[in-house]
Design a protein around this nucleic acid. Sequence first.
DNA 1: TTATTTTTTCATCAATTTTTAATATTTCAG
DNA 2: CTGAAATATTAAAAATTGATGAAAAAATAA
Lengths: 221, 221
Amino acid sequence: MHILIVEDEKPVRQELTLLLKRACYEVTALTSFHDVGASVRSADPDLVLLDLNLPEESGFDIIKKLRVFSEVPVIFLTGRAEMTDELNGMLLGGDDYITKPFAPPVLLARIAAVLKRTKGAGEEQQRLACKGVTLDLARGRISHEEKQAELTRNELKILYYLFSHPDRIVTRTELIEYLWDNRIFIDDNALSVNMSRIRAKLEETGVRDLIETKRGMGYIV
Amino acid sequence: MHILIVEDEKPVRQELTLLLKRACYEVTALTSFHDVGASVRSADPDLVLLDLNLPEESGFDIIKKLRVFSEVPVIFLTGRAEMTDELNGMLLGGDDYITKPFAPPVLLARIAAVLKRTKGAGEEQQRLACKGVTLDLARGRISHEEKQAELTRNELKILYYLFSHPDRIVTRTELIEYLWDNRIFIDDNALSVNMSRIRAKLEETGVRDLIETKRGMGYIV
DNA sequence: TTATTTTTTCATCAATTTTTAATATTTCAG
DNA sequence: CTGAAATATTAAAAATTGATGAAAAAATAA
């Protein structure tokens, strides 16, 4: 298994390299960071360890460019402070993150888990299905009997959460906290609007009443 | 949340106990270590802090035996020198480790993280059964022999309270306080109305006389 | 930049649930 | 048996909650 390290601090990079080599991975470490995308493409690794604080380009920009041509799984290396909504949003694919400083065994466990998920699944996309509706996380869309609809980021997150917790009432608060990460000042109606749009898109694909409202309690799929 | 400490050095053990109690965990600490497996089984904690250097048995043996009957998450306490491959291998489950000496906030963070991971993913359906009627809290409904009925929020709360206290008279006051949180100015008839509706829904599922009125005293299931 | 998409807010609407109120029924002491 | 107190029942009013469409704001892409 081939892992690419993208980390600008030399000591950390060396430690990582050593650790991963000892764990019997094939390791490549970048030393220049002005076109990470191209480097990833040419190295063609099975997994990327990506520091979010690079000198030349932000981790977010890098991952965005990367995703245009590659679905390689990424584990983000990040300071605790940077666990932002944005990062949260990026994790819907097969990716994961770990905060620095990290414990080596934890990192190795994460790597093993991510590889298992992506490779072990026989190179398939990560999907979630629920009552005939398939949620394609990588492409950000739902499909049902040949028909499909594109989802926006929030819609995807909501459906992801609901599909991950089927057959139980998911409270609005739960969803709001998951979506907006404790930004309490958000209008709680924003969620209703999103639900409305999700239902419209579900109907486009011929699905009705997949999400039930439990007035005063939440939603249930 | 209940944490079991397995650590033979008394000062460390006491420090840990204090730290965790202050963090509002329920704490048990072992003082004899010749059959840790059995102790864990009887204490049935939500998490184990396990020193890897115990006098009578190695941490590895303990965890191996433990895993036969329990999936309780474990955080290993270990000296820096012992970060071996073997430890590496044991961490692939939901477990984690921390090296001594450790900083309290780090330990607390690890504990919180592990508990969140394991409990959060638990996702068990909470159910309460009473005389053939099942109260499905997660879905907000009752079922009885294939038939089921949806409950509203108040109905659910009332039934939850009654089912949690079976075979004893629950006073109306008790229910009113539980439902409306000491808002005394509520019409006490509101409860009767709710009971009426609950009984109607029970009857929809073919159940009669589950809730008995004890005139002047309350209700009993 | 400008254009486009997405998200959020706002105003209003619709539906369900909760509460009130009016009336009926039950129970039990006298 | 009667009547008062407690609880039930029913229907209607009130309150709450969520849904919807459109516009404003923000984010993203071109």
